[in-house]
């Protein structure tokens, strides 16, 4: 183990730092996209008309049971052919990066949809009926009764899933992504490709992930003890 030569040396440390910054960026984009897709899917899966619910159930099953690595390899290596046949043009360079973000986000959105849905399902039917009897409109029932409680119930699980998504971005290394936009694990593999030293950059990358997940866990803990979110559900925790 020689950290001075392979981690804290001239080009390598810069690569790793840039990789860490890229991990933050990729995770932020993936999380945003996953929430944007997952939350509406989860809500509609619970409340939309029957045929929409069947389609969305298919969507959730499809992406929840899809392993990430085969999904990424399939889309990255089959997409160029498909694109060529559809549009007659070659796919632009650097598409793998965006395809990677979309695939990881879709994978996470299946889980997020299920979390949102279980948050909605956990509210007893009686509360909706009681709200209607008391004279609230359906819209008011949704925004005054269902949504506040569902948000409260599903926030911890959503946060855990987003931390998991952050860790999942480390599979970028299996794809032919431009080296400058690789994440920290990918930069570790790049150093290993240059000088056959796997262990040292990997230990650095592992430390980075531990620090990131510790920070996100602290943030989640802080969010969950916000007075707006602490209902009786969290008194025990």
């Amino acid at each position: 183990m020689n950290f001075n030569n392979y981690v804290f040396a001239a080009p390598y440390f810069g690569w790793l730092l840039r990789g860490a910054a890229n991990t933050v960026m990729i995770s932020a984009m993936t999380a945003t996209l996953a929430l944007l897709v997952g939350i509406p899917v989860g809500i509609l899966r619970q409340m939309a008309p029957a045929f929409v619910r069947v389609v969305l159930a298919g969507f959730i099953t499809l992406f929840r049971n899809m392993p990430l690595v085969p999904f990424l390899l399939f889309s990255v290596f089959v997409a160029p052919d498909f694109f060529l046949q559809c549009t007659g043009k070659a796919i632009p360079i650097g598409f793998e990066y965006w395809l990677f973000i979309v695939c990881v986000a879709l994978n996470a959105s299946g889980y997020i949809a299920d979390i949102v849905r279980s948050g909605l399902r956990s509210i007893p039917e009686g509360q909706v009926q009681a709200g209607r009897v008391l004279g609230l409109s359906p819209r008011q029932v949704i925004f005054r009764i269902l949504v506040p409680q569902a948000v409260r119930i599903s926030t911890p699980a959503l946060g855990t899933r987003l931390i998991h998504t952050m860790k999942n971005t480390s599979v970028a290394m299996v794809l032919p992504i431009v080296v400058d936009s690789l994440d920290v694990a990918g930069q570790g593999a790049r150093i290993a490709g240059e000088c056959f030293a796997w262990a040292e950059p990997l230990v650095f990358a592992a430390g980075t992930y531990l620090v990131f997940s510790l920070m996100l866990e602290a943030l989640l803990w802080y969010i969950c003890r916000n007075p707006l979110l602490t209902g009786r559900e969290y008194d025990a925790a």
């Binding site: 999942n168 290394m173 796997w198 262990a199 040292e200 531990l210």
Partner: peptide, 22 residues
Amino acid sequence: WFIRGLPIMIIVLLFNYLPFAL
């Protein structure tokens, strides 16, 4: 907490390269 904080990719790579490196 330590194991949960690491991505499976990193665990697999560490398991593969640490025994020989150490």
